[in-house]
């Protein structure tokens, strides 16, 4: 653990978030070091997806600091938390890529264009170069022959693999996976997990993953964090948290999940 303190890459410091009176994150402290694979588990409403959404700046926070690399993504101002000016914010945000439960592909674009569009519009690289980059990524997720299809023509698993390729096309260092297999038919879950597995094995990404599948947590994670009601209840290696949980609440959660 000393290593983590020495080389933090992402850190949440006393982060609070609430919707109205409902506290989603309560004084959350979480530190992730570079190339670490952290899996967040917990009952629904525990705040695990919110952690990813705050990191992607899709949600705001009321209090605390969030640091990514050596930049402040959220800075505590005393009576709230603010994001940096656009240029600085974009530089930080560019390090982060996110894949969603609901794929969110652009329905009016072909698979190739889905992957190539952001590099063209955001990174301002040429269409030809972006297409080349997209084709390589589609090949790596096993969808090279689908580049002219529209999302509607693909299965859920294929759509999610396109979404991963689209995320990778921006060359992020940090990958956020928000329940990426939850909306999939059981038979297509494995094809998506294979892609994530190979990304994890490259050890060049920092991965933060929210999942309900404990086998996935065990396989991908270097560290598993169990949350409940906006607080970290227990964290440690997959073996320790999943096989020998110290906390009663972790135990009862795991029992409930494994029975389902």
């Amino acid at each position: 653990m000393a290593d983590i303190e020495a080389n933090p890459f992402i850190s949440f410091r006393s982060v609070c978030k609430s919707y109205g009176g409902l506290h989603v994150l309560k004084n959350l402290d979480l530190t992730i070091r570079q190339h670490e694979h952290v899996v967040l588990i917990g009952p629904s409403g525990s705040g695990k997806s919110t952690i990813l959404r705050v990191l992607m700046t899709l949600e705001s926070i009321q209090k605390g600091n969030v640091l990514v690399g050596d930049g402040h993504l959220w800075r505590d101002t005393g009576d709230g938390a603010s994001m940096p000016p656009p240029r600085e914010l974009n530089a930080i945000r560019r390090k982060i890529g996110m894949v969603f439960q609901s794929f969110n592909l652009f329905p009016h674009m072909t698979v190739l264009r889905n992957v190539a569009e952001a590099p063209v519009r955001v990174l301002k690289i040429s269409r030809a170069e972006a297409n080349e980059r997209a084709r390589k990524l589609l090949l790596s997720v096993g969808l090279a022959e689908k580049e002219d299809c529209y999302p509607i023509q693909l299965s859920g698993g294929q759509q999610q693999r396109v979404a991963i390729a689209r995320c990778l096309a921006m060359r992020p260092e940090i990958l956020l996976f928000d329940e990426v297999t939850s909306a999939l038919d059981p038979e297509t879950v494995s094809e998506v997990l294979n892609v994530i597995r190979s990304l994890a094995s490259e050890h060049k990404f920092t991965i933060l993953m929210v999942t309900h599948q404990m086998d996935v947590a065990r396989e991908i994670g270097n560290r598993v964090v169990f949350l409940e009601r906006g607080r970290i209840i227990e964290e440690g290696s997959p073996n320790q948290v999943l096989d020998n949980p110290r906390n009663d609440r972790t135990r009862s959660f795991l029992r409930a999940v494994l029975q389902a």
């Binding site: 982060i96 952001a118 995320c167 921006m170």
Partner: peptide, 17 residues
């Protein structure tokens, strides 16, 4: 779908684009 807004923020799309 609201997911289109989410993903565009995640990809860093400028507002006009």
């Amino acid at each position: 779908p609201s997911g289109q807004w989410d993903v565009s923020t995640a990809l860093g799309f400028p507002r006009f684009a």
